[in-house]
Design a protein around this nucleic acid. Structure first.
Length: 312
DNA sequence: CGACTTTGACCGGCGC
DNA sequence: GCGCCGGTCAAAGTCG
Protein backbone atom coordinates (compact mmCIF):
# COMPACT_ATOMS: atom_id res chain seq x y z
CA UNK A 1 0.00 0.00 0.00
CA UNK A 2 2.97 2.22 0.27
CA UNK A 3 2.82 2.59 -3.45
CA UNK A 4 -0.68 3.90 -3.38
CA UNK A 5 0.02 6.27 -0.57
CA UNK A 6 2.51 8.00 -2.73
CA UNK A 7 -0.14 8.89 -5.21
CA UNK A 8 -0.96 12.36 -4.05
CA UNK A 9 -2.83 13.90 -6.89
CA UNK A 10 -4.89 11.64 -9.01
CA UNK A 11 -6.97 12.31 -12.02
CA UNK A 12 -9.35 10.06 -13.71
CA UNK A 13 -9.57 9.90 -17.41
CA UNK A 14 -12.07 7.45 -18.68
CA UNK A 15 -12.25 6.24 -22.13
CA UNK A 16 -15.12 4.22 -23.37
CA UNK A 17 -17.47 2.07 -21.38
CA UNK A 18 -15.06 1.43 -18.65
CA UNK A 19 -15.82 4.71 -17.08
CA UNK A 20 -18.97 3.27 -15.67
CA UNK A 21 -17.09 1.52 -12.99
CA UNK A 22 -16.47 4.77 -11.33
CA UNK A 23 -20.09 5.59 -11.26
CA UNK A 24 -21.65 2.30 -10.47
CA UNK A 25 -24.03 0.55 -12.67
CA UNK A 26 -27.64 -0.17 -13.30
CA UNK A 27 -30.57 1.68 -11.80
CA UNK A 28 -28.88 2.19 -8.52
CA UNK A 29 -25.86 3.85 -9.84
CA UNK A 30 -26.74 7.14 -8.26
CA UNK A 31 -26.93 5.62 -4.84
CA UNK A 32 -24.05 3.30 -5.19
CA UNK A 33 -21.55 5.23 -7.13
CA UNK A 34 -18.22 6.19 -5.88
CA UNK A 35 -18.88 9.72 -6.88
CA UNK A 36 -22.06 10.00 -4.90
CA UNK A 37 -20.30 8.29 -2.10
CA UNK A 38 -18.08 11.27 -1.90
CA UNK A 39 -20.73 13.84 -2.43
CA UNK A 40 -20.30 14.43 -6.12
CA UNK A 41 -23.54 15.28 -7.80
CA UNK A 42 -23.95 14.34 -11.37
CA UNK A 43 -26.66 16.41 -12.98
CA UNK A 44 -29.95 14.69 -13.44
CA UNK A 45 -29.70 14.87 -17.17
CA UNK A 46 -26.80 12.57 -16.92
CA UNK A 47 -29.15 9.64 -16.66
CA UNK A 48 -30.32 10.40 -20.13
CA UNK A 49 -26.90 11.28 -21.28
CA UNK A 50 -25.21 10.58 -24.47
CA UNK A 51 -22.53 8.09 -25.02
CA UNK A 52 -22.17 9.39 -28.50
CA UNK A 53 -20.89 12.59 -27.03
CA UNK A 54 -23.40 14.83 -28.69
CA UNK A 55 -23.98 16.79 -25.58
CA UNK A 56 -25.17 16.36 -22.07
CA UNK A 57 -23.48 14.47 -19.37
CA UNK A 58 -22.27 11.02 -19.84
CA UNK A 59 -24.53 8.17 -19.04
CA UNK A 60 -21.99 5.71 -17.95
CA UNK A 61 -24.35 3.21 -16.43
CA UNK A 62 -26.27 3.06 -19.62
CA UNK A 63 -23.19 2.29 -21.57
CA UNK A 64 -22.45 -0.61 -19.34
CA UNK A 65 -25.90 -2.05 -19.65
CA UNK A 66 -26.24 -1.43 -23.32
CA UNK A 67 -22.87 -2.58 -24.36
CA UNK A 68 -21.45 -5.86 -23.32
CA UNK A 69 -17.70 -5.90 -23.66
CA UNK A 70 -17.82 -7.83 -26.86
CA UNK A 71 -20.52 -5.70 -28.31
CA UNK A 72 -18.67 -2.69 -27.29
CA UNK A 73 -15.47 -3.82 -28.81
CA UNK A 74 -17.19 -4.38 -32.05
CA UNK A 75 -19.10 -1.17 -32.02
CA UNK A 76 -16.43 1.25 -31.01
CA UNK A 77 -14.31 2.51 -33.81
CA UNK A 78 -11.04 0.89 -33.31
CA UNK A 79 -9.15 3.97 -34.16
CA UNK A 80 -10.85 5.90 -31.44
CA UNK A 81 -8.58 4.30 -28.96
CA UNK A 82 -5.57 3.78 -31.02
CA UNK A 83 -2.47 5.66 -30.22
CA UNK A 84 -1.26 5.63 -33.74
CA UNK A 85 -4.36 7.36 -34.91
CA UNK A 86 -4.06 9.88 -32.15
CA UNK A 87 -0.90 11.20 -33.60
CA UNK A 88 -2.88 12.88 -36.27
CA UNK A 89 -5.95 13.44 -34.20
CA UNK A 90 -4.10 15.34 -31.57
CA UNK A 91 -3.49 18.18 -33.90
CA UNK A 92 -7.18 18.85 -34.05
CA UNK A 93 -7.59 19.19 -30.34
CA UNK A 94 -8.54 22.52 -28.98
CA UNK A 95 -5.90 22.47 -26.37
CA UNK A 96 -6.73 25.82 -24.89
CA UNK A 97 -10.18 24.73 -24.01
CA UNK A 98 -8.89 21.65 -22.37
CA UNK A 99 -6.39 23.64 -20.46
CA UNK A 100 -8.97 25.95 -19.10
CA UNK A 101 -11.14 23.25 -17.75
CA UNK A 102 -9.64 19.92 -17.29
CA UNK A 103 -7.15 18.42 -15.01
CA UNK A 104 -9.53 15.57 -14.76
CA UNK A 105 -11.32 14.31 -17.75
CA UNK A 106 -13.89 11.64 -18.18
CA UNK A 107 -14.77 10.82 -21.66
CA UNK A 108 -16.81 8.27 -23.46
CA UNK A 109 -15.94 7.17 -26.93
CA UNK A 110 -18.18 7.68 -29.78
CA UNK A 111 -20.03 4.58 -30.75
CA UNK A 112 -20.44 3.82 -34.36
CA UNK A 113 -20.78 0.81 -36.50
CA UNK A 114 -17.35 0.84 -37.96
CA UNK A 115 -14.39 -0.88 -36.50
CA UNK A 116 -11.24 -1.94 -38.11
CA UNK A 117 -11.28 -4.92 -35.81
CA UNK A 118 -14.49 -6.02 -37.40
CA UNK A 119 -13.25 -5.60 -40.85
CA UNK A 120 -12.07 -8.72 -42.56
CA UNK A 121 -8.60 -9.40 -41.41
CA UNK A 122 -6.88 -8.94 -44.70
CA UNK A 123 -3.58 -9.90 -43.19
CA UNK A 124 -4.74 -13.16 -41.69
CA UNK A 125 -4.14 -15.27 -44.71
CA UNK A 126 -0.95 -13.57 -45.61
CA UNK A 127 0.26 -13.78 -42.07
CA UNK A 128 -0.26 -17.49 -41.96
CA UNK A 129 1.24 -18.06 -45.32
CA UNK A 130 4.20 -15.89 -44.57
CA UNK A 131 4.64 -17.74 -41.35
CA UNK A 132 5.34 -20.82 -43.35
CA UNK A 133 8.51 -19.17 -44.49
CA UNK A 134 9.58 -18.38 -41.00
CA UNK A 135 11.35 -20.48 -38.42
CA UNK A 136 9.16 -22.81 -36.42
CA UNK A 137 8.84 -20.68 -33.32
CA UNK A 138 8.21 -17.56 -35.31
CA UNK A 139 5.59 -19.27 -37.36
CA UNK A 140 3.63 -20.35 -34.34
CA UNK A 141 3.86 -16.87 -32.99
CA UNK A 142 2.58 -15.45 -36.19
CA UNK A 143 -0.32 -17.82 -36.20
CA UNK A 144 -1.48 -16.41 -32.91
CA UNK A 145 -0.99 -12.92 -34.11
CA UNK A 146 -3.06 -13.69 -37.13
CA UNK A 147 -6.08 -13.82 -34.91
CA UNK A 148 -8.22 -10.79 -34.46
CA UNK A 149 -7.18 -8.62 -31.65
CA UNK A 150 -10.25 -7.26 -29.99
CA UNK A 151 -9.70 -3.91 -28.44
CA UNK A 152 -11.46 -3.44 -25.19
CA UNK A 153 -12.71 -0.17 -23.79
CA UNK A 154 -10.02 1.81 -22.13
CA UNK A 155 -9.69 4.41 -19.49
CA UNK A 156 -6.71 6.15 -18.12
CA UNK A 157 -5.69 7.55 -14.81
CA UNK A 158 -3.36 10.46 -14.65
CA UNK A 159 -1.73 10.30 -11.30
CA UNK A 160 1.00 12.11 -9.54
CA UNK A 161 3.02 9.40 -7.99
CA UNK A 162 6.57 8.50 -7.23
CA UNK A 163 6.00 4.95 -8.30
CA UNK A 164 5.06 3.88 -11.76
CA UNK A 165 3.04 0.83 -10.97
CA UNK A 166 0.23 1.80 -8.65
CA UNK A 167 -1.34 -0.87 -6.54
CA UNK A 168 -4.96 -1.27 -7.55
CA UNK A 169 -6.00 -4.46 -5.89
CA UNK A 170 -5.22 -6.74 -8.79
CA UNK A 171 -2.15 -8.71 -9.68
CA UNK A 172 -0.43 -7.87 -12.90
CA UNK A 173 2.20 -9.50 -15.00
CA UNK A 174 4.44 -7.36 -17.06
CA UNK A 175 4.62 -8.54 -20.62
CA UNK A 176 6.44 -5.76 -22.34
CA UNK A 177 8.19 -2.50 -22.14
CA UNK A 178 8.77 -0.05 -24.91
CA UNK A 179 10.59 3.17 -25.24
CA UNK A 180 8.23 5.99 -25.96
CA UNK A 181 9.02 8.45 -28.63
CA UNK A 182 9.96 11.87 -27.32
CA UNK A 183 10.04 10.57 -23.81
CA UNK A 184 12.94 9.39 -21.69
CA UNK A 185 10.59 7.13 -19.79
CA UNK A 186 9.58 3.73 -21.09
CA UNK A 187 6.02 2.50 -21.29
CA UNK A 188 5.29 -0.73 -19.50
CA UNK A 189 2.63 -3.21 -20.49
CA UNK A 190 0.87 -5.34 -17.92
CA UNK A 191 -1.69 -8.11 -18.11
CA UNK A 192 -3.90 -9.37 -15.33
CA UNK A 193 -2.44 -12.55 -13.87
CA UNK A 194 -5.82 -14.21 -13.89
CA UNK A 195 -5.65 -16.45 -16.92
CA UNK A 196 -9.32 -15.93 -17.65
CA UNK A 197 -9.03 -12.20 -17.39
CA UNK A 198 -7.94 -10.32 -20.45
CA UNK A 199 -7.52 -6.97 -18.78
CA UNK A 200 -4.39 -5.10 -19.66
CA UNK A 201 -2.90 -1.92 -18.53
CA UNK A 202 -0.01 0.19 -19.55
CA UNK A 203 1.93 2.55 -17.44
CA UNK A 204 4.03 5.42 -18.55
CA UNK A 205 5.53 8.43 -16.91
CA UNK A 206 5.07 11.84 -18.34
CA UNK A 207 8.14 13.18 -20.03
CA UNK A 208 7.26 16.74 -19.23
CA UNK A 209 6.30 16.13 -15.66
CA UNK A 210 8.10 13.07 -14.33
CA UNK A 211 5.93 13.14 -11.26
CA UNK A 212 2.94 12.25 -13.37
CA UNK A 213 2.12 8.64 -14.11
CA UNK A 214 -0.38 7.76 -16.79
CA UNK A 215 -2.03 4.41 -16.26
CA UNK A 216 -4.28 3.16 -19.00
CA UNK A 217 -6.55 0.18 -18.46
CA UNK A 218 -8.03 -1.89 -21.22
CA UNK A 219 -10.73 -4.45 -20.70
CA UNK A 220 -12.77 -5.45 -17.74
CA UNK A 221 -11.95 -7.86 -14.98
CA UNK A 222 -14.05 -10.98 -14.77
CA UNK A 223 -13.08 -11.59 -11.19
CA UNK A 224 -12.78 -9.77 -7.93
CA UNK A 225 -9.78 -7.88 -6.81
CA UNK A 226 -7.52 -9.46 -4.27
CA UNK A 227 -6.91 -6.49 -2.11
CA UNK A 228 -10.35 -4.96 -2.08
CA UNK A 229 -12.84 -7.76 -1.65
CA UNK A 230 -15.96 -5.77 -2.28
CA UNK A 231 -18.35 -7.66 -4.46
CA UNK A 232 -18.48 -6.61 -8.02
CA UNK A 233 -15.53 -4.34 -7.89
CA UNK A 234 -13.42 -3.99 -10.93
CA UNK A 235 -10.09 -2.42 -11.44
CA UNK A 236 -11.64 0.89 -12.17
CA UNK A 237 -13.74 0.80 -9.08
CA UNK A 238 -10.97 -0.22 -6.81
CA UNK A 239 -8.42 2.07 -8.24
CA UNK A 240 -10.68 5.04 -8.55
CA UNK A 241 -12.06 4.64 -5.06
CA UNK A 242 -8.64 4.52 -3.67
CA UNK A 243 -7.53 7.54 -5.56
CA UNK A 244 -10.60 9.46 -4.59
CA UNK A 245 -10.26 8.52 -0.98
CA UNK A 246 -6.65 9.38 -1.10
CA UNK A 247 -7.12 12.84 -2.43
CA UNK A 248 -10.28 13.53 -0.46
CA UNK A 249 -8.59 12.73 2.77
CA UNK A 250 -5.70 14.90 1.90
CA UNK A 251 -7.16 17.74 -0.02
CA UNK A 252 -5.01 20.78 -0.20
CA UNK A 253 -4.09 23.49 -2.66
CA UNK A 254 -1.51 21.18 -4.03
CA UNK A 255 -3.68 18.14 -3.84
CA UNK A 256 -7.07 18.86 -5.31
CA UNK A 257 -9.79 16.24 -5.18
CA UNK A 258 -10.69 14.60 -8.43
CA UNK A 259 -13.43 16.18 -10.38
CA UNK A 260 -15.73 14.92 -13.03
CA UNK A 261 -14.94 16.49 -16.31
CA UNK A 262 -17.59 16.63 -18.92
CA UNK A 263 -15.67 16.95 -22.09
CA UNK A 264 -18.79 17.50 -24.12
CA UNK A 265 -19.35 20.67 -22.19
CA UNK A 266 -15.76 21.28 -21.40
CA UNK A 267 -16.83 21.73 -17.86
CA UNK A 268 -15.97 20.37 -14.52
CA UNK A 269 -18.50 18.81 -12.27
CA UNK A 270 -18.28 19.04 -8.54
CA UNK A 271 -20.53 19.31 -5.55
CA UNK A 272 -18.56 22.41 -4.67
CA UNK A 273 -18.53 24.96 -7.48
CA UNK A 274 -16.10 27.11 -5.58
CA UNK A 275 -13.75 24.19 -5.62
CA UNK A 276 -13.66 24.30 -9.37
CA UNK A 277 -12.98 27.98 -9.38
CA UNK A 278 -10.22 27.60 -6.88
CA UNK A 279 -8.68 24.75 -8.70
CA UNK A 280 -8.76 26.56 -11.97
CA UNK A 281 -7.06 29.56 -10.53
CA UNK A 282 -4.59 27.64 -8.47
CA UNK A 283 -3.74 24.87 -10.81
CA UNK A 284 -3.98 26.23 -14.22
CA UNK A 285 -0.33 25.64 -14.71
CA UNK A 286 -0.63 22.12 -13.51
CA UNK A 287 -3.60 21.49 -15.71
CA UNK A 288 -1.70 22.77 -18.64
CA UNK A 289 0.93 20.29 -17.80
CA UNK A 290 -1.49 17.44 -17.85
CA UNK A 291 -2.99 18.46 -21.10
CA UNK A 292 0.32 19.00 -22.70
CA UNK A 293 1.61 15.76 -21.47
CA UNK A 294 -1.33 13.87 -22.77
CA UNK A 295 -1.28 15.74 -25.98
CA UNK A 296 2.41 15.47 -26.51
CA UNK A 297 2.52 11.78 -25.86
CA UNK A 298 -0.37 11.05 -28.06
CA UNK A 299 -2.17 9.40 -25.22
CA UNK A 300 -5.06 11.70 -25.70
CA UNK A 301 -5.91 9.55 -28.61
CA UNK A 302 -6.53 6.82 -26.14
CA UNK A 303 -8.57 8.98 -23.93
CA UNK A 304 -10.58 11.29 -26.09
CA UNK A 305 -12.23 9.84 -29.13
CA UNK A 306 -11.90 11.78 -32.34
CA UNK A 307 -15.52 12.87 -32.37
CA UNK A 308 -15.20 14.34 -28.95
CA UNK A 309 -12.10 16.19 -29.91
CA UNK A 310 -13.81 17.69 -32.86
CA UNK A 311 -16.89 18.59 -30.92
CA UNK A 312 -14.87 19.98 -28.11
C1' DC B 1 9.89 -24.64 -9.17
C1' DG B 2 6.47 -21.49 -10.20
C1' DA B 3 5.67 -16.68 -10.81
C1' DC B 4 7.30 -12.78 -12.58
C1' DT B 5 10.47 -9.53 -15.24
C1' DT B 6 13.50 -8.40 -18.95
C1' DT B 7 14.41 -7.84 -23.58
C1' DG B 8 14.93 -8.45 -28.48
C1' DA B 9 12.20 -9.75 -32.31
C1' DC B 10 8.15 -9.53 -34.66
C1' DC B 11 3.57 -7.80 -36.43
C1' DG B 12 0.31 -4.51 -38.10
C1' DG B 13 -1.29 0.19 -38.87
C1' DC B 14 -0.28 4.50 -40.56
C1' DG B 15 2.05 8.44 -42.85
C1' DC B 16 5.06 9.84 -46.34
C1' DG C 1 6.81 0.43 -50.89
C1' DC C 2 9.24 1.84 -47.01
C1' DG C 3 10.07 3.32 -42.48
C1' DC C 4 8.30 4.56 -38.03
C1' DC C 5 5.96 3.36 -34.06
C1' DG C 6 2.81 1.09 -30.77
C1' DG C 7 1.76 -3.22 -29.19
C1' DT C 8 2.69 -8.13 -28.38
C1' DC C 9 5.17 -12.43 -28.03
C1' DA C 10 8.11 -15.63 -25.90
C1' DA C 11 12.72 -17.20 -24.50
C1' DA C 12 15.85 -16.33 -21.03
C1' DG C 13 16.81 -14.57 -16.72
C1' DT C 14 15.58 -13.45 -11.90
C1' DC C 15 13.38 -13.94 -7.58
C1' DG C 16 11.22 -15.90 -3.51
Amino acid sequence: MADEEKADNSHFVAESGWGHDLFGSGDNYKENTILSEFGWNIPAESSGGVCGCDGGFLDLSRIQSDLAPDDYASSVPDRSDDVTMSRSGVEKIEVEEKVSTASVSVSIPSVSSSSSEDKPEKSTASAVSSAANLPMDTASKTKKKGQKRIRQPRFAFVTKSEVDHLEDGYRWRKYGQKAVKNSPFPRSYYRCTNSKCMVKKRVERSSEDPSVVITTYEGQHCHHSIGFPRNGETTATVFARHLIMNSNTNTSPTNPPPLLYDSTRSSLSSSHPQQIHNLKSHYKEDQEHHVQVINGEGLLGDIVPPRMRNNG
